[in-house]
């Protein structure tokens, strides 16, 4: 059996023939949610970012991403979607890459955060940054810091023997191949479409390390 494609008036249907005159009111969530504190709640967090310690008092709602960008003015980490769907906000926390948009700053007390600014500077590029420049592994530049942080951490994950979706033999050690890099970097979207060049940049850095 197949569900019918026409509207009906039952609970499952949502719009009947009277759609044209339907009124829609967007209700504040407060009416539905549990009582919320009137004033924003705050929390204290001590973060070490690129080797420098910061003690911050933040609205509990502040993401790690916004703490970096708005409070520490480290805007190298980008906000592309704020929902974990693009990877532009990738930073390295305690050695692991994460989406900083889907993490509350107050949950990172005592953590060590490395952002793109901590990898290198315009006058002293990290090898991965230099390889991105050499291979033109970017265009607009907005996803680039996330790509680079992700790339640095990806090489670490392969070295740490973390398997991926394209790993053929789960009992063997993780390998560094073009397919592996492409799969592992897939959490970093580049709408400019620099993928082919990015993978070449990473491959070059990986080759130097090997």
């Amino acid at each position: 059996m197949e569900r019918s494609g026409i509207f009906d008036m039952s609970r499952r249907g949502v719009l009947a023939g009277s759609a044209a005159t339907a009124a829609v009111t967007t209700m504040p969530r407060a009416a539905q949610a549990a009582p919320a504190p009137a004033e924003p709640a705050t929390g204290h967090v001590s973060l070490t970012v690129n080797g420098e310690r910061h003690d911050l008092t933040l609205d509990t709602r502040t993401t790690l991403l916004d703490a970096l960008r708005e409070h520490l003015q480290l805007t190298g980490t980008k906000k592309g979607c704020d929902h974990g769907q693009c990877g532009a906000c990738t930073v390295i926390v305690d050695g692991r890459r994460i989406n900083s948009c889907l993490s509350l700053a107050v949950m990172h007390d005592g953590d060590e955060v490395t952002t793109i600014e901590g990898l290198g500077t315009p006058d002293k590029l990290h090898p991965m940054q230099a390889a991105f420049v050499k291979h033109d592994g970017y265009q607009c530049g907005y996803c680039t810091p996330g790509q680079i942080c992700s790339a640095v951490a990806t090489l670490g994950e392969i070295a740490d023997d973390v398997p991926s979706h394209v790993t053929q033999d789960l009992t063997a050690k993780a390998r560094l191949t073009n397919d592996e890099l492409r799969e592992r970097m897939s959490g970093n979207i580049c709408r400019c479409g620099a993928y082919s060049n990015i993978v070449e940049a990473i491959t070059e850095v990986a080759g130097e390390k090997a």
Partner: peptide, 12 residues
Amino acid sequence: IVAGASGQLRNK
């Protein structure tokens, strides 16, 4: 697990 989400998300 490795078929889901992304490396960053799986780390969290």
